[in-house]
Nucleic acid binder design. Structure first.
Lengths: 351, 351
DNA sequence: ATCCTTTGTGGGATCGATGCCACAGGAGCC
DNA sequence: GGCTCCTGTGGCATCGATCCCACAAAGGAT
């Protein structure tokens, strides 16, 4: 048998504070005070307890602590699709900020499904999270959480206007500015590819588009507001039809990065040159847009900042549950690249 | 005053099982059995308890349950950078699979920092997660978790060979196949851009590259194995220098998607045509590679499948802690696009 | 009639950490 | 000496859910 090995045999069970207290020759109360720093402990005792904890590999049981304290240091983050870079960046921003502030993140990807979202909300309540940041897909999860007295910050879009805090971008203003950019280049037939307008994001982007057309005195052709499905392939199919039609638009404004990808692929398949035969503008800037030639002119939102801000707002709300709800509106900026240019002269129908 | 409103006033505190039991006129034990389904309960009583729980908006306290049962239904997932699509997809695959199997995911983005990684591991232990899936950045976190008797699955790369389960791709074989592809096209001066070779990923990819050169009887020029930094800009700078040199390679093999992006940007800045003047091969396939023209020939790994497999492996390990550790090796496939072609005749130095 | 099994219910200990409270000793002050 | 104040420590109840165990009633077998 080896002698004098300083490596202690790993016990089956994890050490508890009771064992730490015994090893240090003090009571559980004193051990707790020594480790948490709450209350009086003599310096020598504090060191002895810390040493004992370290020797035993003691790690506090957050379950027991939370149960006693009736609060946790963790928040829930709920996004629609981690594979989409927008949500991934948002989640990264939220998670990093939460970590920095001493909170643990429970992350759920609800795949855009209301059922999964509600199930996640229930799991968050069961885990007694201090609050939730969500990109909601329905009003149900938020209202359930609020009924359960769990603070919620809706981010990117709103479903529970006024009932909780929110962090969004100025969708309407940004869409207006983007559309105006296309109008100023000379476009008159501008199609809007949009996945939905039940959510505030879609609705406000459509409104911004309409605002700009109206300000410019361009008549609003309902056929140019084209509903797409939810993914790249659906958008590509729709764009394919649109661009193959006789009254083809001279520009497409895609309401998010997936729709822009679909439009881009459709244009390439049809052999349409960008920006020669078609201008393209995207809402939401993702890396491929600066890799392709020409680059895609895009409205950039800082998703990581949205995540950070949402967490910040959530923690302020937790600190002051009674304060009035607020909506933080971040700005988005137009990144002009090469995909939007003046339309070919011959192609402009007289509006 | 409104009468007959069925909406109960929301209490300040959340309902406990004791209150549910009182409302249903049974004991706590019976209420617990009725809600969890463990043990005998008369059908009528079960319904009454369920109804009472629903009326009170009761949601079980996972903290209290876990404390009593000494186990949780949550796992920790630790990745290096959620903003990188590879990790985001991996996390999405892991998280979705965990959710489907009834587990909650605690996700931490450690920013590739060993300190953050260790802090996350401690948080996981405090929260008593059932196990951890990690893309490790050092051996410390894993060994800490294993000392604490927390099952770990290392994914993408290995630091604790044999000490825990792992899910990786066949880096060496895939890199060999990719390099062979370039050799078969006629390239002899093939540069390898690589961020590190302390990790198994980098080391194995370099070995695969060397294997292929050796098999083809091509001498191994150490100057062609080029260390880069960790991000796109660092890789771009390095590629810039490399491509501006007199003995410029005819092909670049970038060991991951960030390095490929750097190489691509550098080539464009220098006005080098791909594949005319430079062939490019990437390890790891991300969306922009199929958007640009020509598309980037890439070795595709299914990151979501890696995440799923890691979670699956973890849960099997939890079910059978005594079983021998295993390493699951997934295959990667070469996606041939247009960025790799035969080198210009004039440019081939005689090997 | 007695015993066993099955179904059903409640009492109470338990998980681990915290924090209130009581208490003890010493310092400082009148 | 008696008083307060400060420092330091331990006992014990507590958080909410679970589950072992005791017990009871009903039905069936012998």
């Amino acid at each position: 048998m080896r002698q004098g090995s300083p490596e202690p045999v790993q016990p089956d069970r994890r050490a508890t504070i009771k064992e730490v207290a015994e090893a240090a020759g003090v009571s559980r109360s004193t051990a707790s005070r020594a480790l948490t720093g709450n209350g009086y402990v003599a310096e020598s005792v504090r060191l002895r307890v810390r040493q004992a904890a370290s020797d035993l590999g003691y790690v506090v049981d957050a379950m027991a602590r939370s149960l006693k304290q009736q609060s946790t240091r963790s928040i829930g983050v709920l996004v629609s699709d981690l594979r989409n870079e927008f949500y991934a960046n948002l989640a990264a921003g939220a998670s990093r900020h939460a970590t920095r502030l001493g909170y643990t993140t429970m992350l759920v990807d609800d795949q855009g499904l209301a059922d999964d979202e509600l199930a996640a909300a229930e799991a968050f309540v069961a885990l007694r999270v201090a609050g939730v940041v969500a990109t909601p897909v329905s009003a149900e999860a938020t209202s359930f959480l609020l009924r359960q007295r769990v603070p919620v910050v809706e981010v990117d879009r709103r479903f529970s206007d006024g009932a909780c805090d929110a962090v969004v971008v100025d969708n309407r203003g940004a869409a207006r500015a983007g559309t105006r950019h296309l109008l100023e280049l000379g476009h008159r037939r501008i199609a809007l590819l949009i996945d939905e307008d039940d959510w505030t994001t879609g609705r406000e982007r459509r409104e911004g588009y309409a605002d700009a057309l109206e300000s410019a005195g361009v008549s609003h052709d309902a056929a140019l507001v084209v509903p797409t499905g939810w993914d790249v392939d659906a958008a590509r199919d729709v764009a394919h039809d649109l661009l193959g039609s006789s009254q083809r638009p001279t520009a497409i404004f895609a309401a998010n990065n997936l729709l822009a990808e679909g439009a881009w692929r459709a244009a390439r398949e049809l052999g349409l040159s960008i920006p020669g035969e078609l201008s393209l503008l995207a809402f939401d800037d993702v890396p491929w847009m600066s890799m392709v030639t020409p680059g895609v002119t895009a409205i950039a939102q800082d998703a990581a900042a949205m995540g950070r801000t949402a967490v910040q707002t959530l923690l302020e709300r937790i600190a002051d549950p009674a304060a009035g709800t607020r909506t933080v509106v971040l700005s988005a900026s137009l990144k002009v690249r090469g995909s939007a240019a003046a339309p070919a002269q011959s192609g402009i129908p007289v509006g």
